[in-house]
Design a protein around this nucleic acid. Structure first.
Lengths: 215, 215
DNA sequence: CAGAAACTGTGTCCGCTAGACACTGTGTAA
DNA sequence: TTACACAGTGTCTAGCGGACACAGTTTCTG
């Protein structure tokens, strides 16, 4: 995935380049924000930029790399977060959630084998820095960040799918007897939109508990 | 997604049906186990069954429904787990991890808007039952299950991508100065393959902590 | 017992996709 | 001035999901 890390090449001879990688990524992001990830086709991205699709292949080796670029540009620079410890981890998680809320397609674009770009790696760097001073090994710190990021991603995604809860409601209504716990859980929602907070609090509690246990 | 919940229709008149939904799903699962989710094409699944692709449309409305069916058949019946509480939740999570280990493609097939099948709902039912007696609201129980399932999925997926850690190693080697925490974390892995255990322990710790806090 | 009706699996077709490749025109370096 | 390197275009292929008409098979009905 050189496209994520190498700087834009400037041609020594020949016509000037009319596009930039970032411009292409931003056009694709705008398209995905409006119509979802499945609407991303080289044809459509190129049309949005006023060129033919084959022109894009001068900037990006293929569609997979374009999506990887979209993810890294869409995630954007890591936000300013103060200090370390629980508060910093929570702020980091909420900032990540805001990114996913802005770009819902990203929740599905970050799954599967893929390359990590500079923005994303700086986010990771920042989260690991918030864990400095804890008694965790490097692997454990990475695991802790993965748990937080995974939770945020899962919640952001489920927020974009609230309607499937209703679809499941129809199934459940006819089979409440077979699924008593699920039916009861849906009938007793508690506070609305608290899924992010709840999971975040439990994970951070668990991290804190282990830190004090080891010291 | 009637295909997941309705029973197989038996034709009153006409030729006997040569296939079954489950047979189709199992053929597709075998293909995906061997070659990944992106190798699933109606053409290839049909070829594996010795029919033309259009024959499949007599059993399944389209590819999305076939994948949903693959997921539900692949997840399979919920395992026997004893009791409630932390031990039951941990056993449930490990059983789910075993499923994902058996069918790596499922980790990417369960993301995005999709329907939930009977097997999957019975897994959810079982996990919620393990949370019976806790002071959590129904919504919170669902959140807790989502956190556990999300973690298991994320870890199973990362296990299938161990090679990208090496690819990232090349990037990091050239930029260790820019990413000191990430470099340090990768240089100090700690126990191998402990990611599942670590996150699971932290989440379950966090759940326990909240239960005792409320009582 | 004949014929209609319903159904399965096939063949053909369409629009769309990612991408390979040859080509034209442009700008710079020799 | 000429040759080279590069940008963007047009054309082509293989493969995809899926609509639709059709032939063959089985069963119910007149």
């Amino acid at each position: 995935m050189d496209v994520l890390w190498d700087s834009e090449p400037a041609p020594a001879r020949g016509p000037r380049r009319g596009l930039t990688r970032e411009g292409i990524a931003r056009a694709a992001i705008a398209l995905a924000d409006a119509e979802g990830l499945e609407s991303i086709a080289m044809q459509r991205v190129a049309a949005a930029l006023g060129v033919t699709k084959m022109a894009l292949y001068r900037y990006v080796p293929g569609k997979a790399e374009l999506v990887a670029l979209m993810v890294d540009v869409g995630i954007g620079p890591v936000p300013d977060i103060a200090g370390t410890g629980r508060a910093a981890l929570e702020a980091w998680s909420r900032a990540l959630h805001a990114v996913f809320a802005r770009h819902p397609w990203a929740t599905t674009a970050v799954v599967g084998p893929r390359a990590v770009g500079p923005h994303e790696l700086r986010w990771t760097e920042r989260a690991l820095a918030a864990l400095a001073g804890t008694p965790f090994t490097g692997g454990e710190k990475l695991d802790a960040v993965a748990v937080l990021a995974g939770h945020v991603r899962a919640i952001a995604q489920q927020g974009a799918e609230e309607e499937i809860g209703q679809a499941m409601g129809a199934v459940l209504a006819a089979r409440a007897g077979e699924f008593p716990e699920v039916s009861a859980a849906f009938a007793d929602p508690g506070e609305r939109n608290a899924a992010l907070d709840f999971g975040l609090a439990r994970i951070l509690d668990g991290i804190d508990a282990e830190i004090s246990r080891r010291s």
